[in-house]
Design a protein around this nucleic acid. Sequence first.
DNA 1: GAAACGTGGTA
DNA 2: TTACCAAGTTT
Length: 310
Amino acid sequence: MSTSPVETVPSAGDTVPGPRPADLHAPVIDWFGENARDLPWRRPEAGAWGVMVSEFMLQQTPVSRVLPIYEEWMRRWPTPGDLAAESTGEAVRAWGRLGYPRRALRLHAAAAAIAERYEGQVPADHHLLLALPGVGEYTAAAVASFAYGQRHAVLDTNVRRVFARAAGGSQYPPNATTAAERRLARAMLPEEPATAARWAAATMELGALVCTARKPDCSACPIADQCAWRRAGTPAHDGPERRGQTYAGTDRQVRGKLLAVLRESVDPVSRATLDQVWNKPEQRNRALRGLLTDGLVERLPDGTYRLPGA
DNA sequence: GAAACGTGGTA
DNA sequence: TTACCAAGTTT
């Protein structure tokens, strides 16, 4: 069959032809060179462990809130072995108010696995990374790409939004990552691994700084002229409702309150003290039970509670 | 595939 | 003030 010299990316409705990958690489990568933030995990001294720690912390959490916690963690636990030698409770405590504290547990477990199985070196192989606790499709690709310069489609919420707009002509991507998005992301990848890694970081940064969810600044966008969404007149999102996340009154909120008490206290805490954080006994008990099951809280023989000591 | 899982900033 | 959003993973 005949292959056209310049491949085009299929776009959603196809009333608007998508941009050609090769036409986007240079503008986006050049823009990144001028506008990339100087983040600590992007510096060479961060190493693969620094990249991994940052990726765990950045899951569903803004950069501004991660920065101070990241610095403290890297100072305290500069290698996977250092973290693995620490108690899980200290990891949860040092996680502070980042949210989703099970990430601290999983990062600790990942560090232990790395120390035991890989002589303390963060693996470079995508499949080995994926097998670590708390490492999913995105994080495995991010570590392999950012820490080791490999060629992977790195599909985070920023990249998905950039592609949805630039190539798909839609304001927002689908709720869950689709096979079509993965295919598109792979098709967009530059051939050279180092360039592909740069592209991954650049598209992510573009989504974070310019092609944002609420107020995209198209005047600052290096590919505005080629953007399918712009060409279509920036139509409003039409697909299924983007389901919002409620929080007030949920078990999650109760778990957060319970854990906050235990984080602040050096000494074990009585059940009576914990009972004060929420006035619905049933929900309160369920939340505490869940924390115990998850390994985020430990009950001592005397009936008091604390963050896990071992 | 849907639901659970924290927390705080911004419009 | 309510609602959305933030470098996702697991069950």
